[in-house]
């Protein structure tokens, strides 16, 4: 199994998000005051400052906004992976997250901007939290 860095707690803003991931849910917030999507999670709305935020569960589908295939890295847990794709994915609910696109035979040729992708939860040797990554649909 992969050995990615785990989230560390206590960390007040991201705990509920990661509890969701552990339960197989990709959670995000919207603001009750201004109705904007709020991501990454915070206790205040990043658009208007309101503390009235509601949690939702994303359907986990979206499009690749941009990506890069990392050919050289010195990050523990990634050095042994070979080339891997870092990406920003725009979820259909309107939030953008940094993630990886996995499951392609050759990430340098098989990933493209606008490509439809779906979340999956990759179990880790490094700890209890799986990591949400995306695979082309």
């Amino acid at each position: 199994m992969p050995n990615r860095p785990q989230p560390h707690f206590p960390e007040a803003d991201t705990k509920h998000y990661w509890d969701g991931v552990k339960a197989g849910e990709l959670r995000y917030q919207t603001c009750d005051a201004c109705s904007k999507v709020n991501f990454t999670p915070t206790a205040h709305c990043q658009s208007c400052g309101s503390n009235a935020l509601s949690w939702h569960v994303s359907k986990g589908e979206g499009s690749v906004y941009t990506y890069s295939v990392v050919r050289q890295n010195r990050i523990p847990g990634f050095v042994e992976l070979g080339a891997y794709a870092v990406a920003y994915v725009d979820l259909d609910e309107g939030f953008r997250m940094l993630t990886n696109v996995v499951g392609t035979a050759n990430p340098t040729t098989d990933i493209s901007i606008g490509q439809r992708v779906r979340v999956e939860y990759e179990q880790q040797d490094s700890g209890e939290y799986p990591i949400p990554v995306f695979r082309p649909i």
Binding site: P7, V70, L98, I131
Partner: peptide, 12 residues
Amino acid sequence: WSANMEGPYGST
């Protein structure tokens, strides 16, 4: 918050 959201993805 940022390390928790970005750290797992190997973004150089």
